[in-house]
């Protein structure tokens, strides 16, 4: 019974670590920023689970609150601001482009 429990917990740990590494890889390699933000939130949750498994509930609390809870919504808000900003910038670029002379020497 004890040996079975050990195997089950080892399987749980391996699955947790594999999920963590996989999430980190996808989070860094994805081109879609919104997808990266959602993956970041999930990464924070899995990281908190790993801390819980390591019997460090205080670190898990901090990770869940700061890593997933505050930074995720802040990223979402920043994403919206970024989109709006880039839209305005694009419009400015367009106007400048219309006004500017299209000499080939300009970069």
């Amino acid at each position: 019974m004890v040996a079975e429990m050990t195997y089950i917990m080892a399987g749980f740990d391996m699955l947790l670590v594999a999920t963590l590494l996989w999430l980190a890889w996808r989070l860094l390699s994805t081109p879609d920023i919104f997808k990266a933000v959602v993956l970041f939130i999930c990464f924070g949750l899995v990281m908190a689970l790993a801390w819980v498994r390591l019997r460090a509930p205080d670190v898990a609390l901090a990770e869940a609150a700061i890593g997933a809870g505050i930074t995720g919504p802040l990223f979402l808000a920043a994403l919206r601001r970024m989109e709006r900003l880039s839209k305005e910038e694009r419009r400015l670029d367009f106007e400048e482009d219309r006004d500017a002379d299209h000499s080939p020497g300009k970069v």
Partner: peptide, 17 residues
């Protein structure tokens, strides 16, 4: 904390993004 913060994330998503 988990229960509180996932709801926060979803609400922010609906409101902002």
């Amino acid at each position: 904390v988990f229960a509180l913060l996932t709801a926060l994330a979803t609400t922010t998503f609906v409101r902002r993004t």
